[in-house]
Structure formats: C-alpha cells, structure tokens
Write a protein that binds this DNA or RNA. Structure first.
Lengths: 194, 194
DNA sequence: GCCAACGTACCGTCCAGTCGGTCGGTCGGT
DNA sequence: ACCGACCGACCGACTGGACGGTACGTTGGC
C-alpha cells in the first residue's frame, strides 16, 4: 500500500514532484475534515475543495473513496509508528522502553486526534481491508509483549493508552488533565525499574 | 429523550401494547444490523426490513433516522446502567463496589457489543445531541469517583474498562482471554480490600 | 366512526464515480 | 533550435443509484 520507490523515479528522491505535494495535501485535508466536521461530512467533493483540487483531480490520485481512506489510514498509522519508535529511542530504557513510549504518546491528546479520525473513517466506511489498522496494532502489541514486561502489565499499558485516545475520540467524558496524568504516572510505575 | 411514562398511558403498565413490541423489535433490529453489517449499512429500509415492518411503519414510531439512533442509544445506555447497578449490588463490597461492577461488566466481550454499536452509530451519524452518551459516561465517572477509591485508580478502572470494549469494537488486536483476565485481575487488586 | 398502526408510492437530494477534455512539460528526431 | 508525439496532472459537467423523508391510503380494534 505504501509506495516508496514509485514507478518512474525521475532523478533523485529528494526532488518531490508536485504530484506528491498534492497527494499529501489531499491526505491532510482528509484527516482535517474528519476531525473537524465528522465522518458524515467526508465526501470526495469536500475533501477536494479543502485540498484545493477538483474532485477529478482527487480521483486522479486516489481511484476511489475507499482507496483514499486506506491511504489516509496507512499514512497516519505509519507516522504514529515512527513517533512511537522515536519516543522509545529517546527514553533509552533498557526494559519497557516501548511501553514508556506508548504511555508518553497519549499524554498529549492532540497527538492522537488525526490517527483517531482516520481509524474512525476506516471503520465507518467499510474498508476492503479492515485488517490494515488491526495489523499495525498487533505489531505494537507484539512489540509491547517483548519489551521486558510481564503479560498483564503489557496488556494494561496497551489498553490504557488506546482506551484513552478512543475515549477522546468519542468524547466519552474524558478525564481531566490532572487525572490523566495521575493515572498514566500510576501505570508508568508498573514498568520495570532499572 | 427517554420517554418512560409516555403520553397516553392507557390503563396499566403491565399491558404491553403491540406498538411497544414493534418499537422494541425495531430497536433490536437497529442494534443487530449495526453490529453485524456495520454502520454504513444502517439505512431505514434495512432496519425496517429486519424488524419485519415497512419503512413507513418504522417512521411512524421514530420520526427520523436521528430519532431512531437516539432512541437506540438511550435504550442500550439505560440497560447497561441497570446491569452495572445490579452487578454493584451483587458483589456487595463496602468500597469499590461500582468499580468492581465496571470491571466485571467488560469481562464478557459480548456484553458490550450492542452498546458499542449504538455509540458508534451515534458518533458517525451526527446526533443532534451528541451529549447523550457523554452524559451517561460522566454519571458513571462520578459514581466511580465517589466509590471509595483514589482518583488515579478510579480513572484507571474507567479507562481500562472502556478501553477494552472500544478496542473490541474496532477490533484493534484485542487481547486474548487469558491476557484479558490477567489484566483485569491486576486492576482489581488495586481496589480497596475490606 | 375514529384513531393508531401500519403499508405503498413517490420525491428531492446527495454523492461516488465516469468521461471527455485542457494544459504544461518532456523527449526523440531532425 | 525546433517540432510534433506523447504523457501525467488536473478540471468540471454529468449520471445513476441510494437514501431520507413525505403524502396518502388501508385496516383493525375500541
């Protein structure tokens, strides 16, 4: 789904073609539209308008609405993955570094807004491949399972973090910042101390 | 939104009119349709068909699609609330009884399927009153806050339980039964022991 | 005979996807 | 240096179908 080495790479990778910029604009518009106006407002015309292209132009890049959503999902999932790994490297824990990253990632509610939007969209409009998100989350699950934690704690970290942004997504009386912090700190103390 | 004592209660409450049975059938069909076929398949015609009535018949009971979803949401939220209170009474803890109930409720994934479906539907189709679900969850949050637990633990119980059924809902690599149990047991041990 | 509880036919709107076309650039031949 | 063939990027009008909602007819119980 993610094409890095494209069909006819003209000269060098650093030269981002205008087409790629348009693609990114469309992807960004998609995420922005969903998180601001809701899934029901996600129409090709609106996305195109927001991205500054025509509907025809949008469909030139993404062959269908499903393809657009799949690409948006892929994009946000991948950037979340990169952010998680960067956080894991940054904290430099010998054990539980990924768990620490997983917790830290959700400390900022804004972090997860776009990813949440993409997942909601993908779940709502049925994707050909609803496994795309599940596969990524399963990879994170495995990573967490091999992070030097016991099983129960690994599961707890995952459920708490994912639960938090899902609660944010649906606005199900999300905990206020202090409670959020206190709870995450409490979970963090279950991580191995080296 | 919740009409218990309706407009013209004829004689006694135990006499359930045929109209009420139809209403319930429609509500059940709504929940079943969403959880089996997904939100995008939730159309008035399909719900009516599944409930064994015509679209006109459906609209006789629920004036609009939004009204239907609001009623379905209200219905599932209310039954979840009753289940939670029954569980809380059953465990008879002096402190943390509601927290215990909140944990127990999500031990069985099937428990939450319908509620989840209704909430998803409500979130997707924008409801006039998106606060309906939030209000109920906020009531549970308050109940949890006054359950004899410290704030961090109360928040943790809520996030873990809600996180679990939200993960189930989106099928985001849900933990297997053993991990689920182990994690919930671990959280349960944070409750006050009397 | 009246009203609630339906059913049936229909309308207007919205929207995904199609299609023919425009425009700027590039590349090979000369 | 120039030209024509070609191509990717993009536009915008259009269509066909789905869907929410309306208008009106019908029936059965009280």
């Amino acid at each position: 789904m993610a094409e890095a080495g494209d069909t006819t790479q003209p000269s060098d990778a650093s030269e981002r073609s205008r087409a790629d910029a348009t693609r990114d604009a469309i992807l960004a518009a998609t995420a922005a539209l969903v998180s601001h106006d809701g899934v029901s407002k996600l129409t090709l015309a609106r996305v195109a308008d927001r991205a500054g292209v025509s509907k025809g132009g949008l469909l030139h890049h993404f062959g269908s609405k499903q393809a657009l959503i799949a690409a948006a999902l892929d994009h946000t999932l991948e950037s979340a993955d990169q952010a998680l790994h960067a956080l894991a490297v940054a904290n430099g824990r010998p054990r539980g570094s990924f768990a620490q990253a997983y917790i830290d990632y959700v400390r900022d509610p804004d972090h997860t807004a776009n990813a949440a939007a993409a997942i909601l969209a993908a779940a709502t409009l049925e994707l050909d491949d609803p496994q795309a998100a599940a596969a990524q989350f399963d990879r994170w699950r495995q990573r967490l399972a091999n992070d030097g934690l016991d099983d129960a704690t690994a599961t707890l970290v995952r459920v708490v973090s994912d639960g938090l942004w899902l609660i944010d997504l649906f606005d199900l009386a999300p905990p206020d910042p202090e409670q959020r912090k206190a709870m995450l700190d409490q979970v963090e103390q279950l991580l191995p101390t080296d």
